[in-house]
Amino acid sequence: MHGAGNDFIVLNGIEQDLSDITRDQWKSMAHRQFGIGADQILLVEKATRPDADFRYRIFNADGGEVEQCGNGSRCFVRFVLDQGLSSKNPLRVEVAHAVLTLNAKIDGQVEVNMGAPIFEPALIPFNPEGLASLQEFHEMLYALALNAPAQHDDWVGVLSMGNPHAVQVVADVDSAPVLEEGPAIESHPAFPNRVNAGYMQVINRNEIKLRVFERGAGETLACGTGACAAVVSGIRRALLDSPVTVHTRGGDLHIAWDGVIDDVAQPVMMTGPATTVFEGELEI
């Protein structure tokens, strides 16, 4: 399946036991030459908590398990409904640290309540000690100082959408050094669990272009949590107004966020496509 070009292997872990699959086996499945090929692998399982209908786990192309995947959540709900695993809509789905509400629409789009963004450094997790910083409206920006002194546009806003993101504004996303800088940002020592590196070009107050270098996967054609993080950061920097259309290389996502009300961050709503490409069987 894919969500705006961000592609996934989606596995039914309810009707078969996949608990013994190793990291190397996940990595082999995701390999584009020797396996099926995917940015991430999604494993559908029974819920472990009473307020959820299902649980899903996410494995990156490097075989490592991660907390959250926005495009994957849309594919998840489409898979569950199309496979007849549930007829409920909307669905409540358990991920690593939260329960998401997913609503499949009749036009083929899926709306996801992605939960509230997290700004507390320790919870992202992010250690800003020793980094230069400045405040732009409501957003604190940091200079990661990779190989050269950061220019103003190289400063990043840092937040979590269930997974960590570092978002910077660039003049032209097509010429941004995503592949050159992305690996260094991903593994920067300020992020103990690594980080997704987002490059955002503001077109107008309701429209951006976005590229994301995802931890454990490299640059993908779209990143749902990255789109949410970019819009939140842009709104906090007073560059954007909700709702925002996010143009990725794989398609468009639509993000809405009401900001922080009475000191409480509001949930981010994401709408986008979820498409099945093919079904098959794999022997392990």
Rank of each mutant, 00 (worst) to 15 (best):
V112D: 02
D107W: 11
D107R: 12
I124S: 02
D107M: 07
Q135C: 11
L123P: 01
I118C: 14
F119L: 13
A132W: 12
N127Y: 04
I118M: 13
G108N: 04
P125C: 04
S133Q: 14
I124W: 09
G108H: 03
I106K: 12
F126L: 06
V112N: 02
L134Y: 10
A122R: 15
A132L: 11
G130H: 02
A132Q: 13
F126A: 09
N127P: 04
I124R: 01
Q109I: 03
F119R: 00
G108C: 02
A122N: 13
G108Q: 08
N127H: 11
E136W: 04
V110P: 08
M114A: 10
A116R: 02
E129H: 14
P117H: 03
A116P: 07
G115E: 07
G115D: 08
L123E: 12
I106H: 03
L123N: 12
D107K: 10
I124N: 02
E120A: 13
M114P: 03
Q135V: 14
Q135T: 13
L131Q: 03
F119E: 15
L123I: 12
E129T: 14
I124T: 05
N127E: 07
F119W: 13
A132N: 12
F126V: 02
P121E: 07
N127W: 04
L134S: 15
S133M: 10
D107N: 15
Q135W: 01
E111S: 12
E120Q: 13
P128K: 00
L134I: 06
L131C: 05
I118R: 05
G115W: 11
E120I: 10
P128L: 01
L134G: 12
G130N: 00
G130P: 04
N127S: 07
V110E: 14
N127F: 07
N127M: 05
P121L: 03
Q135R: 13
G108K: 00
E111Q: 13
M114T: 13
L131F: 08
S133D: 15
D107P: 02
E120F: 09
P128H: 01
A122I: 01
F126T: 04
P121V: 06
L123R: 13
S133G: 05
P117L: 09
A122Y: 07
I124L: 04
F126K: 00
G108P: 04
L123Y: 11
F126Y: 08
S133L: 06
N127D: 14
G130K: 01
I118F: 04
Q109M: 14
L123K: 15
I106C: 00
G115Q: 10
